[in-house]
């Protein structure tokens, strides 16, 4: 990877910080977020944040692993620097969703699933994936 921040990326990272209310440079890569993450994310939360710290916005934005975050908030709770990786990941997801790029196709969703799932799962799913 090039440790060569792109100017355009720096602007987008600042926008992400503004949207999420997080200060990405506060992260000192202790890895507690990744150690506690139940979602087996790869790239892991601390790696996504390191991408952003290195100015590599697209690597973080396009990581497939952001869609596996279930906002359990373990990472945010354990961060010794008061950074919320969950909020940063949600900020990255929102960039796709606000560009009308949903990650769940309701047309192909099984009727059985929709019939037996609690409303809260479906509504949360709408918020996080559509």
């Amino acid at each position: 990877m090039l440790i060569n921040p792109v100017e355009k990326d720096q602007k987008r990272i600042s926008d992400l910080e503004l949207a999420t209310g997080e200060t990405i440079s506060d992260c000192y890569q202790c890895g507690k977020c990744t150690a506690g993450c139940p979602a087996s994310m790869d790239p892991a939360p601390s790696v996504l944040i390191q991408f952003l710290k290195l100015g590599q916005f697209e690597l973080a934005r396009n990581a497939e692993s952001i869609w596996s975050c279930m906002a359990c908030l373990t990472c945010s709770e354990r961060c010794p620097k008061n950074v919320s990786p969950a909020a940063i990941i949600e900020g990255l997801k929102n960039l796709h969703l606000r560009d009308m790029d949903p990650r769940v196709d309701l047309e192909t969703m099984s009727r059985d699933f929709l019939a037996r799932s609690p409303q809260m799962a479906i509504i949360s799913g709408f918020r996080k994936f559509i």
């Binding site: 139940p38 699933f113 799932s117 799962a121 799913g125 996080k128």
Partner: peptide, 15 residues
């Protein structure tokens, strides 16, 4: 206090 997977059931039920 471990997470059950929450709303991920909509996208990755196997997880």
């Amino acid at each position: 206090v471990d997470c059950c997977g929450s709303y991920l059931v909509m996208r990755e039920p196997e997880k």
